[in-house]
Amino acid sequence: MSHDNIQDHIKVYRNIFLALLTFTVLTVAISYVHFDLVWVGILVGLLIAGIKGYLVAANFMHLNNEKKMIYWILILTASFLVLLFFMPTLWDNNIAHSETTVLFDDPGGREYLEKSSH
């Protein structure tokens, strides 16, 4: 990297810094806006976080100009992350707060159930 090149980099870092500050203020401001649909608010919030994340990753972590190997590792990671993230939420049986749950082999539990059924 030559010196001029680095001076350019410093300029970029300064601009990114300002952009990140702006987006931070923006996302806090938007959180006070009331959306009729809850998911719109969530979507906007995630979108802003995504943009901020992209700015950090692309510029500070130099992902806009990285070697192929690194991209491959990240693509692999991202694909597994998608699996980890979305599969559990597609479960039909996620209701954890429904009824009473009794540990199967617990004699006290059985007693409790019998008492409550009378």
Partner: peptide, 8 residues
């Protein structure tokens, strides 16, 4: 973390 916990 910030939006996920504090804002959304």
């Amino acid at each position: 973390l910030f939006p996920a916990l504090y804002l959304l």
